[in-house]
Simulated scan of single mutants.
Amino acid sequence: MLNENTLQRLLEKLPQLKQEIQKVIVGQEAVLDEVLVALLAGGHCLLEGVPGLAKTLLVRTLSRALHLSFRRIQFTPDLMPTDIIGTEVLEEDHVTGKRFFKFNKGPLFANIILADEINRTPPKTQAALLEAMQEAEITYAGQTYALDKPFFILATQNPIEQAGTYPLPEAQLDRFLLYIKIGYPSEHEETAILSGTTGIRTTQVQPVLDAAEIQQLQQLVREVTIDADLVQYVSKLVRATRPDTTTIDYVKEWVRWGAGPRAGQALILTAKAFSLLHGRYAVTMNDIAVMAYPVLRHRILMNFRAEAEGVYPDKVTAVLLQQIERTVTRLS
């Protein structure tokens, strides 16, 4: 348990972290909050947006604002699992002359991993990330290697360029705590971007948090309180996404497959992180509503009719938030 002074010092660093990132990233307030929520909750996130919306810049800036090791992996069609995990090489002991195999660690052995254009690599290489994302370790030649902590993967993908891409399988999508969509900036924000990036001025980002402090914050997130009625509400919300058990006709009409229990875990954990990020120590109904979209949008599988008529998971989430009977007795 952290003492009061340490707790206060850590919480004061969260707005400082946002300020450092916002020296470079203009606007995108909701996106930045969601990325920081994933970091605090100890999960990974998938960033989707058209080219030129600063997805890679956001991740790089985050890494500069933290005292953590950072590696960028450019995913390509010819990338192999050993290119990201590592491989064994034959070496010789110059003293004894004996030869032995030594494991050379790949770029996954870092705190922050930018998996750039993750959907450009084949399923075999995508699958190499599954163990790392779930267990924070990798297995090679029968030997298990622990990854550095904290371990945070931010993957990017382009939604409009389908040639030469391999859609992520549902099993891997579910490993991402949040699926974050990045939209175009407002007119005011775009003007600020153009002014700030076409001159000679450079921006220095100062590191704010180190690995130990981030792990302390991740533990603190789990100590944020949530009312039992809100836990019940989350359970009801997640169960309502499943066509075979829901009572909501909209879901039965458009959804092929609903979210599993991991979605409920993710929703509670991210709501706690969102609450802490905004200086609160108890989850509110609004925290759950805000985080429901990035938590559920990659865990609700639409049917063919929905895809043809342009009905997306976010619409289903909006309907659920409106229609589900609120069983909580205190809406804070």
Rank of each mutant, 00 (worst) to 15 (best):
Q206Y: 12
H278G: 04
M291D: 03
T197F: 10
V283Y: 03
E213G: 02
V255D: 02
T191H: 12
R239V: 12
R222H: 11
T203R: 14
I226F: 01
G196S: 15
P243V: 03
A259F: 05
R239T: 12
V205R: 14
G279H: 07
A212V: 12
I268R: 00
T198F: 12
E223F: 00
G199K: 13
T241H: 06
R262F: 02
L237C: 09
L230Y: 08
E213P: 03
Y233P: 01
T203Y: 15
I288C: 07
T270E: 07
Q204W: 12
T198P: 05
I200C: 10
Q265R: 06
L277W: 00
R256P: 01
Q206S: 13
E223R: 08
P243F: 06
Q219S: 15
D210E: 07
T247F: 13
A211H: 07
G196K: 15
T241W: 03
Y250Q: 07
V283S: 07
T284W: 08
E213Q: 09
T241N: 06
W257C: 03
A271S: 15
G196A: 14
L276H: 02
V231W: 02
V208K: 05
I268F: 00
T191W: 09
T247M: 13
L230V: 03
A282K: 07
T225D: 09
W257V: 06
T198A: 12
S195I: 14
L217M: 02
Q204V: 15
D287F: 05
L276R: 04
I226H: 03
Q204F: 14
A228H: 14
L276A: 04
T245C: 06
A263G: 08
Y233C: 04
T225G: 00
G279W: 04
V290R: 13
G196D: 11
K252V: 04
E223K: 07
A212R: 13
Q232V: 10
G260W: 01
Q215C: 13
A263F: 07
A259I: 07
Q219P: 11
V221C: 04
R222F: 00
K236N: 12
A228Y: 10
E223D: 11
P243G: 03
G260N: 09
V208M: 09
A212S: 14
A259H: 04
E223G: 01
P207C: 09
Q218W: 06
Q215D: 10
I193H: 10
V251H: 02
I193C: 05
D244A: 10
K236P: 00
L277A: 02
A259Y: 06
K252C: 08
H278A: 09
L209Q: 01
E213K: 03
L220C: 10
L267C: 00
F274H: 15
F274V: 01
R280S: 10
D210L: 10
L220G: 09
T284C: 11
L277E: 00
P207F: 03
R222V: 06
L194Y: 09
F274C: 09
D227R: 13
Y233L: 12
P207D: 08
G199R: 13
T225L: 07
S235Q: 13
Q232S: 14
I248Y: 14
R222C: 05
I248D: 07
